[in-house]
Amino acid sequence: MLLQRMNQTFPFHQLRQEVGRLFEDYLGGVDGGTFSGTRGSPAINLWEDGDTLFAEAEVPGMNMQDLEVSVIGDELSIKGQRKECCTKTEGATYHRQERGCGEFSRLITLPCAVRTDRVQAVLKDGVLTVTMPKAEEAKPRRIEVKAE
């Protein structure tokens, strides 16, 4: 149901994604979720369970110091910088350079309010996971039906 709501809120989101994908295919592509030069910033997966929203991004080669995660209102912002591949070694030849590098910034609108003071971000093996507990009013509530 939330997904439906999101698609209604952002009718162009899906279209933009599709067009983006088309170009990526045309330009030689992104594989998996790893960010590459053509995409410029990492892809994000977003899912939920009853009380919590989760966002995940693949950011291989980055440390927590290279990343800045923040939630302001109902927007999640992930900024980062991949430095390791920017330093070109003198006298080295690049036969292939498919891995993206440099700065990126992603901003996504969350489908419901979250408790910004309890947001947690964990980086493990190049995967960033952001855990965002939903605000009380956004949590699903079971409404009891009373028999008369």
Binding site: T34, C85, G91, T93, Y94, G126
Partner: peptide, 25 residues
Amino acid sequence: AYAPGVDIIENQNEVILLADVPGAT
């Protein structure tokens, strides 16, 4: 399976292959 993005760099002594495989140890 997905094909990982790679950089292949050659210097005087060796060839270095870097592959993005997030989630792997």
